[in-house]
Simulated assay, not measured.
Amino acid sequence: MADPVPVSELPTLSLLYKLNRINPADGSEPAYTPNAIFNDKISVIKQDITTLSIDSIVNAANNTLLGGGGVDGAIHRAAGPDLYDECETLNGCETGSAKITDGYELPAKKVIHAVGPIYWSTKREGKHTSLLSGCYRKSLELAVENGLKSIAFSALSTGVYGYPSGEASEVALNTVRTFFEEGKADGLERVVFCNFLQKDEDAYFKNLPKYFPPVSNAEPSEQPTETSTDVKDLATKLPDPPAADPKHPDEPDTKKQKTDSSDDDFVVVDKEEVKEAEAASKSA
């Protein structure tokens, strides 16, 4: 298993702007005013979420909460069979909501299992946006209720559930920003958008300036000013992106772990898995 990545090594949005890793919106008006404090709490990375040493990670779960493909399967494998056992006691979870468990063998203390919507079916009903937003809001609420200081989101519903990365990133960013504006995230020190695929990171980089715009150099900040040397030092600590589907060397017994570790889970819609997900959704 890869070495755990601590929160302290994750670049903040403020740093990404300083390093010109994210460019301000091209002539478009931001939806919110710049806020240095908020930008210091946001991180966007391309990383295997199972390696993060953080208070909580958000799993892209299905209605059963018993494991699946992609990120869901990777998290269950890395956490070990005890995660499956605890999930069995939760009686599933409704789409658009989330439930919390311990992290077990993961470097993360807690796992928040959020069940995102299947895009094409929920869009027909006009519920896709509210259901995806509900996943992010409920996850944030669970983190705050449990006294957690940091939370990392996987790109919910953008895999086999078919939610376009651009639309999904806007829902996530708007929900988090609204939560901040409501003053409900004061206890949170870091909110991380952790992407496995380039398409998801690209979507966040494109839409971040709309919801968390950069702060003008002339605008005072409560944070100490970093020298150019500080910025260069921090830049060298940016985590390397994952090169392959996250794996765990000690996979639990198959009766304890019902996952599909196909390499295509992140990019190709598996019709059988989608049928299972839709059936689970209807029975939940």
Rank of each mutant, 00 (worst) to 15 (best):
D3N: 13
P6T: 03
S8Y: 01
L10T: 09
L10P: 05
L10Q: 04
T12R: 04
T12V: 10
L15A: 08
Y32G: 00
T33R: 10
T33P: 00
D40P: 00
T50H: 07
L52S: 06
S53T: 02
S53W: 00
I54R: 06
I54F: 11
A60S: 15
L65F: 07
P81L: 06
D82H: 11
K99M: 05
D102K: 14
G103D: 07
Y104I: 04
V111G: 06
I112N: 10
A114P: 08
P117Y: 07
R124Y: 02
E145L: 05
G147Y: 04
K149H: 15
I151P: 03
F153V: 02
F153A: 00
G162I: 11
S165Q: 07
G166Q: 10
E167K: 07
S169P: 04
T175Y: 03
F180N: 02
K184F: 01
A185S: 15
F193D: 02
K199T: 02
K199S: 12
L208C: 05
P209N: 10
P214T: 05
P214Q: 09
S216F: 02
E219Q: 09
S221E: 07
D233I: 03
T236N: 08
L238E: 12
D245T: 13
D245F: 14
K247R: 14
P249M: 01
K258E: 13
S262W: 09
V267F: 12
V267G: 01
V269D: 01
V269C: 13
S283R: 13
